[in-house]
Amino acid sequence: MEEKDYKLLDQYLQDELPDDQKAAFRQRIKEEEPLAEELKLRQQMHTYLRTKAQQPDLEAAMKNLGGTYFSPAEKATKIVPIARRRLYVGLGIAAAIALVLLVWNPFGSGNLYKAYAQHPPLALVEKGDALALAQQAEVAYGEKDYKTAYDLLNELTDLSSENVQLQLALGISALETGRTTKARQLFEKLAEGNSALRNYGCWYLALSYLKTEEFAQAKAELQKLDDSDPALYDKAAQLLEEL
C-alpha cells in the first residue's frame, strides 16, 4: 500500500470523501485484499475505543462508600442535636475520602498506568498449522494471561512477522510481564512504520514510560500521535493533561 492509501482510509473512516470518491474507494476495497484488511483493522480499533468508555475508579469508589455513610434506611429514632449531626456527617465524609485515597491513589503512576492501559482485543487470522496456535494465543490474551500469551505469540511471530496486530499484542504481553526492553523494541517498530497501528506504537511507548515513571519520555511519545485516529488522539491529549 502507498502513503496516499492510508490517507484515503482515514478520510473514508471519518466520512470526509466526496460521494464519487467514496464509491470508487468502496470498489477498490472489494478488489484489493490488502486495502480491505487494513480497513477492517482500523474499524476494529475505532470500535474498541468508542465502546471502551468506563466510569472512573474514583467515582465508583465514592458511590460505594456513599451507600455506606449516607444510607437512606431509617436506623433509629434517637434525636441527635443538629450541631452534633453535622459533625458526624463531616467526619463520615472525611473518613470516606481518606479511605478512597488510601485504596485508590489518583496521583500514583501505577494507578494512572492501569487507568489508561485498556488493551485492544486480539483477532488473529491464521491458516494451516498456525490456526490452533493463534486460537490459543487469542484465548490467553483475552483472559489477560499475558505470560502464556507472550510465549504463544512469540511462536506465531516466526510464522507471521509482518502481522502488525500480532506485533502489538506481543508488545503488550511483553510489557505486562516485565519485558520492558522487548516491548519498546516492538512498539518503536510500529511507531516508525506506516500501518494502521502507527499511533498505537507511539501510544504504547508512552504507556511503557508511564509504567516506569519516566514521565518526560512518556510526554514526548504522546506528542507524536497525529489525529488520524481521533479517539486515540483524544485519549493521548487527556493523559498529557494529567501528566
Rank of each mutant, 00 (worst) to 15 (best):
E2K: 12
E3C: 08
K4N: 12
Y6H: 12
L13P: 02
E16D: 12
E16S: 14
E16K: 14
P18L: 04
Q21L: 15
K22I: 05
A23K: 12
E32V: 10
A36T: 01
A36K: 09
A36W: 05
A36I: 03
Q44F: 14
M45R: 12
M45Y: 10
A53N: 14
A53H: 15
D57I: 13
E59G: 05
A60F: 11
K63M: 09
N64T: 11
G67A: 02
A73D: 13
E74Q: 14
E74F: 09
V80C: 00
P81E: 08
R84V: 06
L87V: 07
V89Y: 10
G90L: 04
L91K: 08
A94N: 03
A94H: 02
A95N: 14
A98Y: 05
V103D: 07
N105D: 13
P106S: 01
F107W: 13
F107D: 13
G108A: 15
S109V: 11
S109F: 13
L112S: 05
K114R: 11
Y116Q: 10
A117L: 03
A117Q: 04
Q118F: 07
H119S: 10
G128M: 03
D129K: 13
D129R: 09
A140E: 01
E143T: 13
K144Y: 09
K144A: 12
K144Q: 12
D145W: 06
Y146C: 01
Y146W: 07
K147T: 12
Y150I: 02
D151E: 15
D151G: 05
N154C: 10
T157Y: 13
E162W: 06
N163C: 01
L166V: 04
G171Y: 04
S173N: 04
E176T: 03
T177E: 03
T177Q: 05
R179D: 08
R179V: 04
A183V: 05
Q185M: 11
F187S: 02
E188Y: 10
A191H: 02
E192F: 10
G193I: 03
S195N: 04
N199K: 07
G201Y: 00
C202L: 10
L205A: 02
A206S: 06
L207G: 00
L207K: 00
E213L: 07
E213F: 09
E213H: 10
F215S: 13
A216D: 15
Q217W: 11
K219C: 07
E221T: 06
Q223I: 06
L225Q: 06
L225R: 04
P230F: 03
L232M: 01
K235R: 12
A237F: 04
L243V: 09
